[in-house]
Design a protein around this nucleic acid. Sequence first.
DNA 1: TTGAAAGCGCTAACAC
DNA 2: GTGTTAGCGCTTTCAA
Lengths: 362, 362
Amino acid sequence: VTERPATPRFQHGRRPTILDVAAMCGVSKSTVSNVMRGADVVAPATRERVLAAIETLGYRPNAVARNLVQQRSNLIGVVVGNLDNPFYAELVKLMEGQASVREYTTLICNTGGHPEREAARLDALLEQRVGGLAMLEFSGDSAVLSKIVAEGVPAAMVSCWADSLDSVSVDDEAGAAMATDHLVALGHRRILHVSDAKMEASTRGKRMDGYALSLRRHGLSPGDDAAIVWDDEHPERAVRDLRRALERSPAATAVVAANDFTALRVMEALEGMGLRVPRDISLVGFDGIAVGGLSRVSLTTVAQPQRELAQEGIRILLRRMAHGSTAPIEHRRLAPELLVRGSTGPPRAAGPAKVDSRKAAE
Amino acid sequence: VTERPATPRFQHGRRPTILDVAAMCGVSKSTVSNVMRGADVVAPATRERVLAAIETLGYRPNAVARNLVQQRSNLIGVVVGNLDNPFYAELVKLMEGQASVREYTTLICNTGGHPEREAARLDALLEQRVGGLAMLEFSGDSAVLSKIVAEGVPAAMVSCWADSLDSVSVDDEAGAAMATDHLVALGHRRILHVSDAKMEASTRGKRMDGYALSLRRHGLSPGDDAAIVWDDEHPERAVRDLRRALERSPAATAVVAANDFTALRVMEALEGMGLRVPRDISLVGFDGIAVGGLSRVSLTTVAQPQRELAQEGIRILLRRMAHGSTAPIEHRRLAPELLVRGSTGPPRAAGPAKVDSRKAAE
DNA sequence: TTGAAAGCGCTAACAC
DNA sequence: GTGTTAGCGCTTTCAA
């Protein structure tokens, strides 16, 4: 039987704990804890000794233990649908920045828009006992929603919506209407809408509503082939629907896309059919992602105020984390802004363009 | 004085613990633990009872407590420089996917390329006692590096490099040489290099080396004004250097950019000067981000195999987490691939293009 | 101003 | 098979 040494036992690979620090400078661990937490009850001389020991030992407090005893954590879970979409990548980055300024660490999960993955990632976050949850995109799956509510974890929807949770988002309906109004003002009469299959249902719905509302206000109607859904896993379907709507008479002369990510794909598809944007067909996106601003791309879009969304999102979440379920639910709506760039213009005077059927067939 | 009820005390907001489950079905918490952990020592009948209790109570194990007692966590810290750069956003997404398949949760931190923020975010990760660390971009700051080594936390460098840590990356030098070879083969003789100030130093260096190596192999030399650094916070400097190099005689006819993110900005700057790509000047990027593939952008680039990088990165990290510091350091080098698209072509036959000084002045 | 002690929720020996 | 027990590293009363 080996005897334990009396001096701080330092097995290989073992991190020093608060006890090692305490032992080194002959105080109790409470005192070390008081120093660490900045409680101003410690005598200056003692504090110095403790600080020195922390330094020499390379002591680093264990957040896991602290979280366990405090029954809360400085972890914020961020659930995002698709980091491929620059809008969300940018938003996640901004939120992480906001959170870390406030000493919170973010756990970021990408769900790919699949409700079952969303549920699984959420479970992981809940097991980590995150202090709060930010949903940046939300499948709308009611099982996921009820899990959040049942768990009672503070949550905020950012750039998406759920009745029962705090949220901050832009006015999607107004934004989509602005996009459509812009096209109508340019003289377009037959305008299509392409939405994104991956997009959360309620936002998708509101953007479609805004589009339809604008048309109605101008005495126009969408037409039965005007609502197209872009599913990135089966782009050929949307391309086919798009082509049909463009070959009909009167041919569509403009497209409102549900977001920039989709708009870029639609632009690609249209140009693949031999159509020129905006000469033959105009296109408006939604979100205001950075690449849309490149002169090569020059996508007219309805921009969301990302920085404000991130800031408000974190603010609302922290408020909820502080107040618990007592505070009333807060829904912030921010105003989107129409950025007119080079992908929109008046419809062709010389009548509708012809789809290049050779290219279109590919 | 109120008396404590004998039945499971359920204060408001208190999550059920393993003890509540145990009490509910009259077993000890070890048995519940055995069921949870899938230890096959539990009698089927007991297991059923426990499972039922878990179900009705909505019990969810506390990963914080588990991590504390197990002295390890299923958390993987991912440190990335800039999520704005789609290359990293895409890579992060892939790594998160790989990690979650293996039941690991990722903690993602964005450092903005600032060493001090990198150090701060790293501290947060270490306090959470992450089981492993993936560095996707690394300032090269030696303080950060030595912190990782001192802490003894398993770490892998992905798409970047440190001698003392496992890594997986592409052969940056060979890739940059491929890009340059391609331009030389097209007939270009005076070729500039624009690197990215935010980029980690060693990768930046290797890509520059590859560029210089290729030139030398072809009997060319860069010229004293050929090395330009793009700093996103002061783009005007790079633009000025670029313009000078283009106004000199013989004027440069091609640019190798250190990455796609920078290439896109250079493209924007060149076209802002009234130059056309590739007619007046050719441009090659590095990374292979998705937007480069849009027909509007059509950026010739040296693509990195992102999926493989993510897969190998997680594999190497998990290997290190399993073996501790005993295993030898592993450096994997993957081959990059030249994607010739529309931003490169032969130099103008009719001599160098004229920079539009009106536009250039803006 | 400092220390002693009681946990936070869980795992993992080990005993029964 | 199941229960008992001893912690993991820390915070937080409460006494001294």
